[in-house]
Amino acid sequence: MSSDPRLTRAGSRTATPTHPPPPPPPVGPAPIVSSDGGVDGTRIDGSQPVDASGQDNFKLKFCTVCASNQNRSMEAHLRLSAAHYPVVSFGTGSLVRLPGPTITQPNVYAFNTTSYDSMYKELEGKDPRLYRANGLLNMLERNRGVKWGPERWQDWRIGVPRLNHQQDRGSIGVEGGVVDIVITCEERCFDAVVDDLLNRGSPLNRPVHVFNVDIRDNHEEALVGGKAILDLADSLNRAAAEERIIHGDSGWEEGNGASRTNFDERVPEILGDWQERWPQMPALWTLAWF
């Protein structure tokens, strides 16, 4: 586990001052802080375990999307699952593309049928020194600890139960094959997702908030981006949970003032506040349909 990128970050942040330090973590639930030093494979503690004891544990279901389902979406997937959010992740590209020895020789894999583990082994067999130096092996090692292999967004059969993904981290809660929030990591992916949902014709009649958080595709930015996405997820989840508590047993009529404003209504505001905390990641949002 020494190769976990999280561990390298502590050093790399001071070593590469080109990246502005991320804003201070918002006053949020404990998981952010506790997961900071978390390591792959070991269960991250400090946050309460998932149980069905009450409303407090209401969790929105998330989906993270990037181009190849390797770097940014997987970092966010790990982050969110570490905070015990139900989460799935996808890529919108046509193929999984990883850098090769030269620009013209990328390593290309098919979505859905290639596991992170097999990619890891193949690259390790090809040139361990190169792929360790450019961070690919570290990344794949992280990914193979999160789920089996990269999945393509366009091939996702939304609403089909995902019972065969129980080994994936963050799989608890997304057995139904649907999510409440989709977070893409690049405008191109956002467009692909919105367009794909339009093409599907919204057969499930289920609303889904689609966000875009622009993250550059490198290891360092992915780490910062994962943190930002977790912050967004926390803000959204807090609002959604509040809605359920306030309008729960006491009923709609007894809610007052701000508490009456519904979760969905607050989304633009939440994103606006988030954007002020993370100005370096231009965000987008829309309400689409599954």
Partner: peptide
Amino acid sequence: NRKRGPPIEPTDGLDQAKR
């Protein structure tokens, strides 16, 4: 002024062809 310039790093899954 707020628009991002061309990506400093590759944008497509660490695709070196686009770096």
